[in-house]
Design a protein around this nucleic acid. Structure first.
Lengths: 349, 349
DNA sequence: CTGAAAGCGCTAACAG
DNA sequence: CTGTTAGCGCTTTCAG
């Protein structure tokens, strides 16, 4: 434990000296290599290699005004739900960002004061004012969330994962997953397997996301001319709510299958089936939404609608680059179609 | 879509002008407020407030050499396992970092070239050379992982989540969870519930982490004078391996309970029980490790060892601050004790 | 306690 | 195509 100071990284000047050129030429070699004579370029690149040089990000940021950082707010982790979908999304986003030369900066929403509603905007504000990030990815676009309009007001560059439900004219770029298409897929899958009395287990009516997903079930049922009366129920997105509601539904409407707005609710259905000695799949079909890890490992495997998160991340970053380059973005946003991961919970016999 | 340029954030000079002082005085008001006369300080603070000023991070970074950023490498997400523990940890880390005035920068390990082993170090190297982060949190400290020694060699500041299994003398700060204590807790819990033939379902022998966890089971069994012959098996950390191995173990050794090295393996046991018409809890006790979301929601609830990730994050950040302040760190690292989340899979009757 | 000057490493404008 | 100059916004000397 003698001299623990890390060696100072080489600067542009060091490279210039070694290559026998001016600092500016080194800068050009990195940012506009076409300007250099091939011979000079090679010499500079060799020096860069030899010294292990990489441009200092702070200096570059100060000079260019771009931090090459994308801010993402981590919403508090939900325990006792199945929606660990954030994990997969963050991975995908980091990967997509890297390919575009960006890093992801994580932040949370300021100190949580007991008794007070946490300030969702504090984190954005601090980052914005200190010019720490070039742009934000906004994920919680549920109705009434002030983030999007607040950012738009401040002219902060951002792209939303989720449609602007509350404001059709907001005009910011967004990417979303077509929930209706997903549940349509789920319902059709159950219909193909011979189910007719297919129930909907969804969220409360004020959730636009939930209504979107519900619509897919309704459409698929209507397309077959099947009645849906008494087959739908709307509850909170909790395990217990799914448990209770599915038990009640089995008693009142005797469905042979459930399409659910989330894996959390679907797992609730599985609990009901276990309690009644029914088998998920052969006895009662169950489909979730999110394709969470839980869906993948829970016995007998939960069939689930899988959002294309990798694709979402790629589209978000693409929209972001366009935005930062001040290119006009497509007015309508990007809507991606999920797939269906079929597992034991919809197996017959 | 007229003038979409966000307004330029105010600078130190703007604040100085408004407050009628020099730029230096504003800087002092922020960094060494004790130096100012209370009256002046109040005036400056008022100006800061009025303008919504926050110091430009790039400029500060360039000047002080500190980015106030902590680098964390996202390892590729595992599908079909229960270990979504990263999510909870990242949250906790973001929170702990915020309280210390740091943000978390996420990165991944360079481009993955087909056929080649991905370069774990590329991401670290790039960040280090461009002085993008002040320090790293390293999470994959399994045996043979080159990250720690590579970083140490470069004198890069880092703290490890996980003991330096391969090198007792490595001398870098670390924080870890006492796996043996966790499985001891798990085993004692089963013993209290009347189990005697308690099996161990763990990882391959070359996993030091797995051996640590196994030791707790052995200790608890030995303390009661119970034999463990034929009751232990070591497999890969996959659902299928847990499934197969537990089935074999039930046939050969007839255990009444399983302590597992991971939730993934424990879920494998649940699959075996379902297939045999046995009930987890009343018929066969099962305990996992990680307290993943899966453990929380899978019927009938998986009892699991819960690593104190929030505490881990706090200790990691504490060690990091000490390291960056060049204070001597405690030689031994910090070992934290997990708790046991008791659920239906260990309920009797 | 407050003000003036220097410079962190880089790139955008110019001059050669 | 290459070299010189200036300055991004901040903090750290050093004088007053």
């Amino acid at each position: 434990m003698v001299d623990d100071q890390p060696p100072l990284p080489p600067t542009l000047a060091d490279v210039a000296e070694l290559a026998g050129v001016s600092r500016q030429t080194v800068s050009n070699a990195i940012n506009s290599p076409a300007l250099l004579r091939p011979e000079t370029l090679a010499r500079v690149q060799h020096a860069i290699e030899a010294l292990g040089y990489a441009p200092n990000r702070a200096a570059r940021h100060l000079r260019t005004g771009s931090s090459r950082l994308i801010g993402l707010r981590m919403s508090p982790a939900q325990e006792f739900t199945a929606d660990a979908t954030m994990d997969r999304f963050v991975h995908a986003l980091v990967e997509a960002s890297r390919e575009a030369g960006y890093h992801v900066l994580l932040f949370s929403g300021g100190p949580v004061v007991a008794g007070e509603r946490p300030d969702l905007l504090a984190g954005y504000d601090a980052l914005l004012r200190s010019t720490a990030v070039d742009a934000f990815i906004v994920t919680d676009t549920y109705l009434g969330n002030p983030q999007a309009s607040w950012l738009a007001e401040r002219r902060a560059p951002f792209v939303a994962f989720g449609r602007p439900w509350d404001d059709e004219t907001s005009g910011h770029p967004w990417v979303d997953v077509d929930g209706a298409a997903g549940t349509r897929l789920a319902t059709e899958h159950l219909l193909e397997r011979g189910h007719q009395r297919i129930a909907w287990l969804g969220w409360r009516e004020d959730s636009r996301l939930g209504e979107d997903r519900r619509a897919g079930w309704e459409q698929a049922m209507a397309a077959r001319g099947l009645a849906t009366d008494g087959l739908a129920v709307r509850v909170e997105d909790t395990l217990d709510a799914g448990w209770t509601a599915s038990a009640a539904l089995l008693d009142t409407a005797a469905p042979t299958a459930f399409v659910c707005a989330s894996d959390t609710l679907a797992i609730g259905v599985l609990h009901t089936l276990v309690a009644r000695g029914l088998r998920a799949g052969p006895d009662v079909g169950v489909v979730g939404f999110d394709d969470s890890q839980v869906a993948q490992v829970v016995p007998p495997g939960l069939t689930s609608v899988r959002p294309p998160l990798e694709q979402v991340a790629v589209e978000l970053v693409r929209a972001l680059r366009r935005l930062l380059a001040h290119e006009p973005h497509q007015a309508e946003g990007v809507l991606l179609t999920p797939t269906l991961a079929v597992r034991g919970s919809t197996a017959r016999g």
